[in-house]
Design a protein around this nucleic acid. Structure first.
Lengths: 212, 212
DNA sequence: TAGATTGTTAATCGATTAACAATC
DNA sequence: TAGATTGTTAATCGATTAACAATC
């Protein structure tokens, strides 16, 4: 079982390699990929080894083959259909900015409680009422959900999703979701990320003697 | 120097404790806070110890005092004023959902290149043109920036920000930013987060025998 | 061939966990 | 007092880094 960091890096490698491929790069060395990804060459070699792909000492890694190997490793037999819960400002931003980027991950349905959002098509995605949730999750084979609802509604929504059989959630609400053992949850907390930046930026500025 | 994880958890503790305080809680035990934060009691004790606050065996931690201690530790002498770069869908979502939550962190200015956004007030925040950047960063004493521009514009924007003396950035663009030594950058990559959820959710589903 | 890069093992580093005396 | 919880040290765990023979 690879670590979360390794999975994150592999995902990033694939993204970078796809772009390198369109620019005509046929081979990359570990330190080149490391430079692009903000990792070390040793990490790249470790990550690549862990997915069972091998390069050659002189040429390095074949870009096309490596992309393929990462895909075989990362892409699970799970359906790649995603549900978006909440079509407020954040939900709409996710729909417009991130829905199209990866063909392997696709937001196929959105849900909201606001009557003026339900039954509308927003950024190319139809918004449904919560009553339709279970049926749509089943018929569309949705395995993953994005939680972009206010904090107070996040837990009830998560409960409904778990009952409907969802396998994983990406949670933007600043709440720790209680879910059954078999469900994977990852949190993106923008406020905490900002506080972290503020803290370490402040420490660095102090070290530089810029302030304090 | 505390780890990034410790800083993230401390930020979360403060958030949770503030809410507990308004609900009338005067004291918490390590395992209670751990339960709320999705951490272990040992982690809570370790984190609290590292900021120099002490509880008592019978009562646990005083909520009000602990919040204060976390603040003294996390809140740097750095100005808490933030600039938002890019007022597209994501930028607007950040303005509306996260700007008001923490009084210690405040988005005081937004910037965009689109003429129809410049000089407008969006979600209570004035949007400026990039020409005004340096002057506003200086006069408003802005130390932190949020990068919510398209990938292709992220690096030039980051360069300008570094020249203007910014200390830290929270980057939403799917690019690894090149910055000088003294600048702290943290990345939020929603696509990678989704791929991670998909991978681990798939693994869990396999283990449960739900698929495969 | 010579040299850079690979796969792979061992060493290091740091965070988490366990353990336990001190204490309210 | 008895008992749960604390601060603190030691043990564990896992990831990163270093090292190096194999190899194209």
């Amino acid at each position: 079982m690879p670590s979360e960091r390794t999975v994150e890096r592999l995902s990033l490698y694939r993204h970078l390699l796809s772009r390198a491929l369109t620019e005509g790069a046929a081979h990359v060395h570990s330190h080149q990929l490391a430079g692009m990804a903000g990792a070390t060459a040793a990490q790249v070699r470790h990550d690549v080894m862990s997915i069972g792909y091998s390069g050659t000492p002189t040429q390095g890694y074949e870009v096309e083959k490596l992309i393929e190997s990462i895909g075989e490793f990362l892409d699970t037999p799970l359906s790649r259909n995603i549900a978006l819960m909440g079509v407020g400002n954040l939900g709409r931003a996710i729909l417009s900015d991130f829905a199209v980027r990866r063909p392997t991950l696709k937001i196929v349905a959105a849900f909201d409680v606001e009557p003026d959002r339900v039954n509308r098509v927003i950024h190319g995605c139809r918004c449904h009422s919560l009553e339709e949730l279970q049926q749509i999750i089943w018929t569309q084979q949705i395995a993953i959900a994005i939680i972009a609802v206010p904090a107070s509604e996040a837990q009830p929504i998560a409960d409904t999703l778990c009952e409907a059989g969802i396998c994983g959630m990406l949670n933007f609400a600043p709440v720790r979701l209680q879910v059954p053992q078999g469900v994977f949850v990852d949190d993106v907390n923008i406020t905490i990320a900002l506080e972290k930046v503020s803290y370490f930026a402040g420490r660095k500025a102090l070290d530089r003697g810029r302030i304090g």
